[in-house]
Write a protein that binds this DNA or RNA. Structure first.
Lengths: 200, 200
DNA sequence: AGCGTATTGAAACGACTGTTTCACATGTGT
DNA sequence: ACACATGTGAAACAGTCGTTTCAATACGCT
């Protein structure tokens, strides 16, 4: 078939999905068109036909990776918890499921590449922080905190999760890291919650 | 000159220093022998003569980067502080000096590469966590804590610093991040210190 | 039926990769 | 003075890279 069928306007998107799968498995830093094309059942010619150049394809991949992340953790946004401590523990359990390890591996790889090439990955770098600051600070802002306070608190939460996740990805030492996580949650839980006005 | 002079047994080491400089500036993920050799005033032939292959050279570079880190933050190990809070703030001030930014950029890049290629970078991955766990937990162990408790606490400290540093490197938003850092230190400071026995 | 657009395969392009070969220089030890 | 080990430059190796050229498909539309 040459022309895609009527409801298949998205041969491109469907190809991109396969490409993102491939990148989740092999990483991005030494991505090469020919092996990639073989793996997704296409050809370098077609990849360049759809995206113009490897650089633009990479932009699309990064966007695709971000979309996957959002889908994967959408449940965190939909569930409501009695206490922030419970929410954090649940988030941690979700994040550290083995099936999500490639996602975090890829995130940290992208982050490292982005720091070395800020112009190419500018949007990734922005979203890597801002998406989660917004997410974590919303309940506080809704609870009446100032935006600056809420963003500072969200920054702390994000830093904690990221730091614990780095350790866990590197060492896979769940016992030690979860012990530290508990220690951390016991320390900071009183800042958030219904009585967040205390923090002012 | 062909043969190095008598006290210059370390033409190799001196070359490696220049190479590490270059990598600090250009990153590691797309390192190439010819541009590297040009920059350090050598040739691909010589680099391979000294290190055998690019892979072994990279091992040497990673070791060199780690050595630089240790030297850079050696002062943190020598200074003693009245309170852990003060020590953390001082460490943060040191870490976030602009001249140290390349070091953290490179660290995060290496970390990302290491997660995607655990066998090549196994030693880096180990040291990236263990070196600092040992460093942070020593005062607690000396103070009488159990090793597991001390390592859990050190894990939390390390995670915090790493997370804040990720944010700071990505956004350079010192005001927000330091606000979060303060929030964090105010929450967790009571765990460490002379009365660390309370944490048992 | 036939034109035009969308898509694709095969092959080649020049540039670059890590590595090797060969030659040559320079120093030390005998 | 000669042999030998250490170090280095120039060039070539085979392979891979992203990209382009040329050609050929197959489909929708008039």
């Amino acid at each position: 078939m040459a022309r895609p069928s009527v409801d298949d306007l998205s041969r491109r998107e469907q190809l991109l999905e396969a490409i993102v799968d491939y990148v989740f498995e092999h990483g991005l830093s030494d991505l090469s068109l020919r092996p990639l094309a073989d793996a997704v059942g296409s050809s370098p010619r077609v990849l360049l036909y759809y995206w113009g150049s490897k650089a633009e394809l990479i932009q699309a991949i990064v966007e695709g990776v971000r979309a996957r992340q959002l889908v994967t953790f959408a449940s965190m946004r939909e569930t409501y918890y009695a206490s922030p401590r419970e929410a954090c523990l649940d988030a941690w359990k979700l994040m550290t499921q083995p099936k999500h390890e490639p996602l975090f591996r890829l995130f940290f790889e992208l982050f490292g590449l982005a720091l070395q090439d800020r112009t190419t990955y500018a949007s990734f770098l922005h979203h890597a922080i801002e998406d989660w600051i917004v997410f974590f600070s919303r309940p506080l802002i809704d609870g009446g905190s100032s935006e600056a306070d809420a963003r500072a608190y969200a920054t702390m939460l994000l830093a904690g999760f990221r730091g614990f996740m780095m350790d866990f990805c590197a060492t896979r030492d769940r016992r030690r890291v979860e012990r530290a996580l508990t220690l951390w949650l016991d320390s900071v839980k009183n800042v958030e919650g219904k009585d967040s006005r205390r923090a002012r």
